[in-house]
Amino acid sequence: MRNVFLLAIGMFTLGFDAYIVAGLLPDMSATFHISDSQSGQAVSIFTLCYALAAPIFATLLAGKPIRTVLVLAFAVFTVANGASALATNYSFLLISRAAAGIGAGLFSPLASTAAASLVAEQKRGRALGITLGGMSIGTVMGVPLGLIVANEVGWQGAFWIIAVMGFITTIGMMIFFPDFSTEAPPSLRQRVAMMTNKNVLAIIGITFLASIASLGLYTYIASVLKNLEGIHSITPYLWAWALGGVIGSLSIGNFIDRTGRPALLMVGILAILSVGMFSLPYALAFPIFAYFPIFIWGAMGWASVAPQQHALLHTQPRHGKVAVALNSSANYLGGAIGAALGGMAMAQGLSSSHLPFAAGFLVFIALLGQWIILRKQND
């Protein structure tokens, strides 16, 4: 299991990097003299390249030794984060974030495949849980930890820390990781072919809409909070979101096992998430009450991932790995588009304090779509 934990550390670093920029937006905006909506595109381009890199580069590198590809992916990711720390202008920052997203997108699906291949069949669930858990914990804790780091060493220092973590992980894989053959990650052709299945497309569409709302809004959470009166420090609220995310992602599996109805659970999750987002601007008028909707947002946003994966595995038992990987791409692609749309809306004059209403409306649309899916299953 040592190598599985090594993969989990790598996945934690990727998740940490994916959304740490959301907590650094105000400082980055001040450095480059740009708006928060512009600096938020650094999140968009990372997550967009993350979502697209996996199928494209998996096809190009198919058949290569797994250790070689993992080391190459993390080396690209590490160097790109060092370049982000050294960025002297906004354009160079975007280029470096795109390169980091490509490295992350190549590493992530291959790490999951490798984790399942490193252990006996009866331990594969645990190995995958550890590996994917590293990603989710890194993602939900990226913003609050990023703020703490930025306050101490600046936003450039935050990227240097990620680069150091990446360097250590890369060296660890070069020294300790075994060189073996395994099944290649899903190819571009496999993912495109999967989109012709209506059931898969419907499930992934819900994931896509929910991630536009939840992860897209999360990109601007620092801006949303700082624009509201009565909040002197946003860090406690970010920890509330992170705590909700950890609890939601780790506990939802038990509910799935007990009910055996992921589609019904997804209806409840989306309903609660929409209420939480619509109530957020009102709750923030009373800072002490604001923790609850933010906690609910984090918990429900991350709890929505597992039911979708379970539904896809049930729908496509022979091609479950491809379907789940496609769902992961849709999740991060939705986050990228959500960040881009949020930035465009703010650039057109929409106040960041109104973004939760737009996000809540998208979740409500996803809820209606999920209700239709549930009704068809019951017919």
Rank of each mutant, 00 (worst) to 15 (best):
C49E: 07
D257M: 13
Q370Y: 07
M195Q: 06
F57M: 08
I95P: 00
P55Y: 14
Q308I: 13
R261V: 08
S187E: 00
N89P: 00
N199Q: 14
I247N: 08
L313F: 15
I247C: 11
V275I: 12
G103I: 04
A58V: 05
I247W: 13
A213P: 03
L270A: 10
A22M: 05
V246L: 15
Y90V: 01
L72R: 04
F208K: 00
M194C: 03
I66N: 07
W239M: 08
S353V: 01
P186D: 07
Y50T: 06
G268R: 12
N331T: 08
A210N: 08
F167M: 06
L86H: 01
A222E: 15
D17T: 15
L313G: 01
V267P: 03
H314W: 08
G142C: 08
A366D: 01
K226H: 14
T78H: 08
V140P: 02
T131Y: 09
A42H: 12
A8M: 10
A42D: 13
G63A: 12
Q190F: 07
Q308L: 11
H232L: 03
V69K: 05
R189M: 00
T315A: 15
L106R: 01
P55N: 13
L201A: 13
F167C: 08
T88Y: 07
W371E: 02
L110K: 01
A306E: 06
A345I: 09
A311V: 03
A263Q: 13
G342S: 02
G338E: 05
Q316V: 11
T196W: 08
A115Q: 09
H33Y: 13
S39M: 14
S351I: 01
M266V: 02
